[in-house]
Design a protein around this nucleic acid. Sequence first.
DNA 1: CAGTGGTCTAGACCACCGC
DNA 2: CGGTGGTCTAGACCACTGG
Lengths: 263, 263
Amino acid sequence: MTGALNILYVNISINSTAHSAPADQPAPGQSRYGWLAASLRARITQGEWVPGTALPAEAALAKEHGVALGTLRQALALLVAESLLERQHGRGTFVRAGLGGASMLRFFRFRQSDERTTTPNSSILKRHVELASSDVTDASELPAGASVLQLQRLRSISGQPCLLEQLTLPLPLFDALTNSDTAAWDDLLYPMYQRVCNVSIYRAEDTLSFGLLTPEQAALLQLDAGHPCAQVQRRAFDMHGHCVELRTTLGDAFAFQYTAQIR
Amino acid sequence: MTGALNILYVNISINSTAHSAPADQPAPGQSRYGWLAASLRARITQGEWVPGTALPAEAALAKEHGVALGTLRQALALLVAESLLERQHGRGTFVRAGLGGASMLRFFRFRQSDERTTTPNSSILKRHVELASSDVTDASELPAGASVLQLQRLRSISGQPCLLEQLTLPLPLFDALTNSDTAAWDDLLYPMYQRVCNVSIYRAEDTLSFGLLTPEQAALLQLDAGHPCAQVQRRAFDMHGHCVELRTTLGDAFAFQYTAQIR
DNA sequence: CAGTGGTCTAGACCACCGC
DNA sequence: CGGTGGTCTAGACCACTGG
């Protein structure tokens, strides 16, 4: 099941120490709970507990690792902080299913008379397979020569185009999307990635900038050529910390609004 | 010393429960460490420990409140999370001095041949006192009829204008700035607020959007009228959670770049 | 060296959930 | 009701800082 992924990332996995299997004992200078967290992280990313399922109870895990309850709880707190786990009082500790919808709408305010919980409709305009450009391999850490699926996607609210997206998905991880009927695709991609390709998105990095629409882009968004646009460049990562989606989203700059907290 | 502040915020303080003095016992359903944190927060915001100084040691605080060490540590962790305290292994637990420089440059990439640690020069173009508009009172929760100090400020990097700012500061809190020589002001405002007005900024909320420069704005920034600009609307808060600065910053939209983390 | 925060233990009891 | 995570205790020892 993870075979395709291993083929893709074999080089990275060898060189990476972030998620390698931990030793039997904490390294000198490493805290016991830090080592425990790494140990549990490895078991989770290796699929011992499937996303959505519950881990054994605190007491059981603590006993299994020969550690006090408080120490185990510190380890779990780390994994919760990196959004790999989710704890629910009285129910259990669950492996997170991944981001449901990390909607691009968080960056825009499009006029909607009533609700703002609506999901824009989605239509795929283009789809083709190509070799990854150097931009793509730089941003995603894909190996040179990797092939990727390129998508162009238009999102609309009640018939009005609002967001134009260019997506890059690594193959063979997303092979299942290269031939299926795009008209039947979901409006939300991340749940579909999970269902169809067994890929969960756990974290994303959105870089915001500003530009002007090309005539082609403008026509699709029903705006004038050269109209100002906000650009969101997203890198989305899976449970292993690998980049599994690159996305560039364009929208009317005057509909853009985002609030950041500074501490 | 906090008299001016009390005059300004008397209505808010009366209505607010967020930072009121806690009872002698945790309310039913409230955790002991939550209550302890509230108690310590009150003592900090009331000035019992001045920013930059150290709190008593864990053991002393725990004994004083008749609580176990672990419980006290949970309370301190809450205050660290809201950036009111800072802990340093082997040294102590300190009241934070506030944000040093929450630089607007975080949102922009201006071309600089060498370093990017440089602070732009700052010059005050306008300064006057006026009654707060409804926009201002809405955003800052100042009482209607409050008077405020309005500033216009231009920031430049090696002689090249890059950011145009409009600041609104509540009076009488910032009285010390109404007549002092603006040419002698610091390039960084927050350390100056602290030194001159005894106001520390602990948190800020920046709302990003795009617009077009008016002819006047464009002239100051040495750009064309109608040039696209990125706009950062900031609300900055002090230790008590009161908004003590409103700021609107304009800069060339093509220099705008910001990265947000999504989990 | 003495004093600080960081880690860890082995318990106890409480609050919440679902059956 | 039994099982889960959340709170709390009263210690012990370790790691870092500064004089």
